[in-house]
Nucleic acid binder design. Structure first.
Length: 260
DNA sequence: ATGGCTGCAGGATGCAGA
């Protein structure tokens, strides 16, 4: 079972590439972030033609996440629990039946948090705290699950080409990384890091200043696995080809293979 | 990087992203 996550940076602007990629790679579950569109306007038909069931949690202009699956949805839920007043569309999850049980997959878009010290920074931390509480609950239920998405967290120095450029940035603050570690320490596994300890693997390259051409990237898109999912992990890949395509997203897809 | 692109809303330019 292949599960992929991709911050698409506007599904309308990226539709051709997204469809081409999905039809080539054929993930069973595909998580999008930053669809930047309302639910009723999401181009669901082109993905349904590829065999996907489509569920979205969209928003006009900003944010927005989607979950596409070749398996039928047993359950869908929108919004990260823990704050009913949160208006930003950053979380959608689905449950799917598999041989011998079920797997839960979430598509999440963790807040950027810049500039440091502002209300956006506080919102990022509050959101991370809610995500931790959510993960703890799901772990206590001993579920098989995958939390996939744009975490806006650079976990370690080796996850940036120039870590010194990110000192003072919300993505790389000690408090940000500490919260991310807390999440892992609950018992989650970063799929990519379980498969590779190498530096130099990135999922985002800024549009500015020739960042792609200079390989000035960061690794901020992650798939975190519960123990039952990690036990079935067979591989993880970053598909950086798409960053070289015409009109690319600034993020590239990350995917895993599970023996499911 | 004190931000050099990009998408989006709206109908000019400002905001958000990372």
């Amino acid at each position: 079972m292949r599960i992929a996550t991709w911050n698409i940076n506007g599904i309308r602007a990226r539709l051709d590439g997204a469809v081409q990629w999905a039809s080539e790679v054929q993930p069973e579950v595909l998580c999008f972030q930053e669809i930047k569109i309302e639910d009723g306007l999401f181009p669901r038909a082109v993905f349904e033609d590829l065999g996907y069931n489509v569920e979205t949690h969209g928003q006009k202009s900003f944010n927005g996440v989607a979950l596409l699956s070749k398996l039928p949805f047993d359950e869908v839920s929108r919004g990260l629990p823990g704050d009913d007043s949160d208006q930003q569309a950053r979380f959608i999850e689905g449950v799917f039946s598999i041989a011998g049980g079920a797997i839960r997959v979430a598509s999440l878009y963790l807040p950027n948090g810049n500039p440091v010290g502002t209300e956006k920074y506080a919102y990022k931390f509050a959101w991370m705290d809610r995500l931790e509480a959510y993960a703890r609950e799901r772990l206590e239920a001993e579920e098989m699950f995958v939390l996939a998405g744009d975490y806006n967290v650079i976990p370690e120095d080796i996850d940036a080409r120039y870590p010194e450029h990110w000192v003072g940035d919300a993505l790389f603050q000690p408090e940000t990384r500490a919260r991310y570690r807390r999440l892992l320490n609950l018992g989650l596994t970063c799929a990519f890091r379980a498969c590779s300890a190498e530096p130099g693997h990135y999922t985002f390259w800024d549009y500015q200043a020739g960042a792609w051409q200079r390989n000035n990237g960061i690794r901020i898109d992650h798939l975190l696995l519960s123990p039952l999912a990690a036990d079935r992990l067979e591989g993880a890949q970053i598909d950086k080809r798409t960053r070289g395509w015409d009109k690319p997203s600034d993020h590239v897809p990350v995917m895993i293979e599970l023996a499911v």
